[in-house]
Structure formats: structure tokens, C-alpha cells
């Protein structure tokens, strides 16, 4: 795994003016939903290229169990059992053919996150996946460079 790449939390968590029950309020994402850092690399235990997100107050490993989404597909998402937060993205580099097309990888990851955000969650919160996507946009090329270098 590469070293953690810091993310600009303030840039990703901009205040929004929203109307809730007829009242105008300023809304920020929960501080726990905004990733602090991201890193990528081949996970020796699975042999897959893994993108990992670090959230507020968490050490290397999350403090809740993880559940796998779309475990049979080329892009496996591991989300927190309680928070539904996206902690890890595992890529099957062979079926994605990453050594040829970088864009294809980012698109596959983006589609997988999109599927995840459409599913019913509890508590409801789509913003947390948008901010994860934003993190990938911010650091995606660094991660893909790591991926191509590692394969």
C-alpha cells in the first residue's frame, strides 16, 4: 500500500443552504462522513488492488465491521456495517484490464459507488458517497498511477 494521501476536508464539506420542514438552515456533512485521506496499493491478503479511505478519528482499520457489496463483480465495495460508509474499494485488475485503460478503472469505480448510493440506506445520506467520489476525483490519478505501477 502507498502512503496516505491527505484530502482537503474543508473543500469537500462546503456549507449548503437547504430547506428542512419549511426552515432555511445551513447544512454540512457529518464530520465522520468526510474522508481525511486515501491510499491505494495491492493488498497482499487478497491480491487485489485496493483503494482505502481513512475517516475522522479512525486508525488504519475502521472501528466497525465491514460488509462487502457486489462481491462477485470486478469492483468490490466494502462498507461499514453500521454507518454504510465506504471504507475500501477492491479492484480485480485482470478483468478490468488496467494496464491498458486508466479511465476505465475510474469509471468502473464511479459506477459501483453510484449503485451503492442508489440503494436504500439507514440513516439516509447520499452526500457521503458524493464526497467519497470527490475524494477520488481529487486523488484518482495518483491512485491509478500507483495501480499501473503495481500491476
Amino acid at each position: 500500500m502507498s502512503t496516505w494521501l491527505r484530502l482537503n476536508r474543508h473543500k469537500m464539506n462546503r456549507p449548503l443552504r437547504r430547506r428542512i420542514k419549511g426552515a432555511e438552515v445551513t447544512v454540512f456533512l457529518s464530520p465522520y462522513d468526510v474522508p481525511e485521506a486515501v491510499r491505494g496499493g495491492v493488498d497482499m491478503s487478497t491480491g487485489r488492488f485496493t483503494i482505502q479511505f481513512k475517516y475522522l478519528g479512525c486508525s488504519e482499520d475502521p472501528d466497525e465491521p465491514l460488509d462487502a457489496e457486489a462481491e462477485d463483480g470486478p469492483v468490490v465495495l466494502r462498507v461499514g456495517r453500521n454507518s454504510h460508509r465506504l471504507y475500501r474499494i477492491e479492484l480485480d485488475t485482470e478483468s478490468l484490464g488496467v494496464d491498458r485503460v486508466e479511465i476505465r478503472v475510474l469509471k468502473a469505480v464511479d459506477d459501483a459507488i453510484d449503485d451503492l448510493s442508489k440503494r436504500r440506506q439507514r440513516p439516509p445520506n447520499r452526500g457521503r458517497y458524493d464526497v467519497t467520489r470527490q475524494a477520488l476525483v481529487e486523488r484518482g490519478h495518483d491512485l491509478v498511477r500507483e495501480l499501473v505501477g503495481g500491476v
Binding site: A23, V27, F28, L29, P123, N125
Partner: peptide, 22 residues
């Protein structure tokens, strides 16, 4: 039933967001 949550505290809990009212 989170729609019935009361107060700014209740809305922050229901929406799982940081809410500012001034």
C-alpha cells in the same frame, strides 16, 4: 420515524448532518 424528530438536535440526528441555524 425520523420525520417527527424535534429541535435542531433532532434534525441533526435525523439527517446525520451538521446543522446551523442563526
Amino acid at each position: 420515524d425520523a420525520d417527527r424528530a424535534e429541535g435542531v438536535v433532532g434534525q441533526a440526528w435525523a439527517t446525520n448532518s451538521q446543522i446551523l441555524v442563526d
